[in-house]
Design a protein around this nucleic acid. Structure first.
Lengths: 193, 193, 193, 193
DNA sequence: AATGAATGAGCTTTCATTCAT
DNA sequence: GATGAATGAAAGCTCATTCAT
């Protein structure tokens, strides 16, 4: 029972734990477990997030924002191909234990006009930026477009989030996708595999 | 609410509805909804499938068996490349509204030594057969192996199962994956896209 | 599935099995188990006994009637003391695995005007006859009356019906009660222990 | 429906009501009825006792502990015979409306190594203490042992718990048992009847 | 007459959410 | 603000009973 601890700190701790709990157990994990692991009362969770959906959304927004920041940071890298494929790999690797997050990734429009929808779109735009640069640099075929690339990002993340997919298989799976995305056969993309 | 209409027909209708319901809502959809949509009492569902898990398993077994039959039928086709890529496309297209089923696809071993586990492995073996023939025929790179191919099958299915992914995007997504799998650049696989 | 078997035989088999099932599991045992063990369909049970309560009652009536017959048979024995104490011991020993039956023994008035109530009263009267003769013969104290004797019969039966009460303990328990009932200390009653 | 009145008081009220409800209806009485009579929501019952079995156990433990305390208090009495027979009478009188509790009394070992098993054994030991002192004082025959005495305790309680057994009959029933337990004929024990 | 599939009410248990402290 | 006890609406599952065959 933390006394007079800063409310903001509580909110962050709840989000951290929720990300973990929902990541492992899916959205069907219980709010009470979040509260318990966060070391706060259940009512404190509901004070900060009036609804379970709101909590889930907050987790997603934060996660999307992080990914967006990561993507935008890579926009400034020298090698646009390395930037694009590196981000792709980074996102998929990070999804390994975040089932619920990945589930939400594609539901772009499913959030209504919520903050989560906006965060999701912003991430998508950032990925679009990486793709465009990679195409202009000749690292990715010019005839692919964002929707299918994004779908692949989500799909491979989803595959990686399941339990029995070890690192090596994930790597080989990505090598195939990258080969398909690469401008000239698979040679170039293989560099990032 | 039909009574005593025909036991076998009832069982099949329950399975059909359950495939639909669990396909959309995931395994968290309620058994009661299955019963209601099937037009039977809740107890009838539980008479046929003593447990919710048993119902889900029965749905999966039937689905896996269908896919396996489809895969094995294609083993006899003349063009091994067309057989492999055609089946891949077929499976992904069919996954469009079957979220939970796809979820279960990768959980392969998670069923203990149940019937579902065996059905899942049988499907995997059948896919392995298609892959092997396609490689021998030079349609698929020799350095890819079943685990990553299966992961891609699952991942792209998962991506396709989400709501706002229309046919064209799905097709273009698969074109990328097929290009990555194709033996010589993307030329060959593109034929099946 | 017995075909065209005599209906009466079915009824008897159901009663036999029900006595066993309810004896072990109490009245909360399921009717379906009775049907299964009797080798008949569930509907056959309900055709013969329109209600679970009716089945239970039929079991009780038969059991009470048997005990009554046994008691009345002993009325003709030469030694009234041996007749009384012997019947007491017989009833308690027989109760060992018949929880539900014993439960019902004391509920004399609880059956309304049903057949079971009559059977229960008839048994009670028969026990009264044995008691009276034993008292007239000087084997049982004259100041005890049927209500408390019947209560002891039921109580010791109940104790014996519980699982971990082995034969020897039951015997020693009865020896105490018999000593209390005997006219002159415990000497006489001990003869029957 | 009081809210947040006082947790401990609520817990006690639930236990009180449960003792009553299970006492009358046996363990097949519904938890929902306990909640309703206690004036709390069903979930409140399950918050305090995570399982129906746990609730039943808690009721039993409390009951056993009370009886044990009573027995031990009587260990200090001057007249060991009065202590033993008095406790016997007290326990049987108290059982009048506690069918299920009495049922549980003999199932002693049936609880695994739960708290209820320990409480039951402790009670049994306390009764053993009373018995031993009464025997040393010459108030109870030396050749009786705890198992049969305990069985009689349970059996007479069971008999007394049934509906139509009025006070006088119960008293006369006990007089018989006490006469059987008494060291020299029935003279001595009759004093406590 | 016999069957067993179908039924719906009811039970135990869980969980998001509210509210008195 | 924070707490956690209390809530009621499901959910999964069982069982006595009915009814078409």
């Amino acid at each position: 029972m933390p006394q007079r601890s800063d409310a903001q700190a509580n909110r962050e701790r709840i989000l951290d734990i929720a990300e973990d709990v929902f990541g492992h157990g899916g959205k069907s994990a219980s709010t009470e477990e979040v509260a318990r692991l966060a070391g706060v009362g259940i009512a404190t969770v509901f004070r900060n997030f009036p609804t379970k959906a709101a909590l889930l959304e907050a987790v997603l927004v934060r996660h999307f924002n992080r990914l967006q920041a990561e993507a935008e940071a890579r926009l400034g890298e020298q090698d646009p191909g390395a930037a694009f494929f590196g981000f792709f790999r980074h996102l998929v690797a990070g999804a390994a234990t975040k089932i619920a997050l990945v589930e939400a990734l594609l539901e772009a429009g499913g959030f209504g006009d919520s903050e989560a929808a906006e965060a999701s779109h912003a991430l998508r735009r950032a990925v679009g930026g990486l793709l465009q640069r990679a195409q202009q640099a000749g690292a990715v075929r010019n005839d692919v477009e964002l929707p299918e690339v994004y779908a692949l990002l989500v799909g491979t993340s989803r595959a990686a989030a399941q339990a029995p997919l070890d690192d090596e298989v994930r790597s080989r799976m990505l090598a195939i996708v990258f080969a398909g995305l690469a401008a000239t056969g698979r040679t170039k993309a293989a560099d990032f595999s």
